[in-house]
Design a binder for these strands. Sequence first.
DNA 1: CCATGGCGTTCAGGTGAATGTCAGGTCAGG
DNA 2: CCTGACCTGACATTCACCTGAACGCCATGG
Lengths: 223, 223
Amino acid sequence: MRILLVEDDPVLGMAVRDQILADGHSVDWMKRLDEAAAAIHAAAYDLVLLDLMLPDGRGLDFLKKRRAAGDVTPVIILTARDQISDRIAGLNSGADDYLVKPFDLFELSARIRAVGRRYSGNPNPLVTVGDLEVDLAARSIYRAGKPMPLTAREWALFEAFVQRPNALLSKAQLEERLYSFDALIESNTIEVYIARLRKKLGADAIETVRGMGYRLGAPGSRE
Amino acid sequence: MRILLVEDDPVLGMAVRDQILADGHSVDWMKRLDEAAAAIHAAAYDLVLLDLMLPDGRGLDFLKKRRAAGDVTPVIILTARDQISDRIAGLNSGADDYLVKPFDLFELSARIRAVGRRYSGNPNPLVTVGDLEVDLAARSIYRAGKPMPLTAREWALFEAFVQRPNALLSKAQLEERLYSFDALIESNTIEVYIARLRKKLGADAIETVRGMGYRLGAPGSRE
DNA sequence: CCATGGCGTTCAGGTGAATGTCAGGTCAGG
DNA sequence: CCTGACCTGACATTCACCTGAACGCCATGG
């Protein structure tokens, strides 16, 4: 697993890095947010460990921005003791987990494994939807073995349908999924992305249920 | 979101239950592991809140067993303060998250949202009406596995009957349900939609009680 | 520094399915 | 047979949705 560590404290950073390496993962250690941003663009990480208190800006804004840009890389927040409000804000900004300093290094390992299990993990990495093969962990779609590139937003939307193959999802639900609670969208963005997905994946990839929402196109009957 | 709470402490359990309800989720509260196991078999949950210290056995074994059986329902562990080793063991046993007692109720909400964002869970529970299978969450109806598409209004009407299977609903009640108070309807709209439902679901899907209203029939029994 | 291109978002115009209304027919009960 | 309640096919209108195009932001590369 490729892990990006963003932490300015040299002592803690080294300890964390060594622990990660000992667990058999690879790690890039950045001490500033701009370095981290550059690293993220340069390489794809499976996990980001993000300190919220950094010298050159608030880690929370960084996280929000990444999520707004459609980045869905798992993020574990490292935060100081007893800053519950920060931790809640972190989770609401799109973090997947947090650790309170000072934390047990073995606990860190367990957390990393837990996050890793969610994504690259459990049963069947390949899901078949109609004539498409969907790799949820790698966030990619194949048709007849050929990759069908999606943008971040398109993927976020499509993922919602794949995760609940039979569900009918209202526009409100989809908006809530693509955008955080506070940021309310006031247009037909969802419609536009539905259209773009159909253009890429086929007109019947997503079915409109007028007045109620959308649903995955018939991938096969229930049960 | 359907949540299963497994917690033997009555005070904490009630507080958690109320918070979950306030967040708009539905919750089943079990005090013992055998009850919880039975509940899991009976219904599909989107999330399990699991206390590790229960009178009738170790919650950790319960969790391991569920995971070994292929159950991938997200689990958040509730554990006592300073039992770091337990928490690690929990994450390694397949838990997705944990909360340390005593925890902030708002933090609980944030955690639930975070988990809910990741997975959106399991197939929805089905209600059987005559020869129809009704998925209330997905707003869809199946007959012999085949979906029977309804329009928004048709669904709203049918839902009223399914939610109260034995009730006799007057036209006034149905109008009040389909339309907001101010918007007064001055025609036989309800009759028309009853007819449309019968055409789609079968003539005896809804039974007329002359002068009083309508009630759910046994759709399909006489096709 | 500006040019470029990809991506996310917004807007306006057009379309058709869904809706509500009506008129005439049918049925049950007195 | 009469009356009121209910059924049903047809139809105009509406409104939810689709879609092409344009705008702005940001990152990248001269």
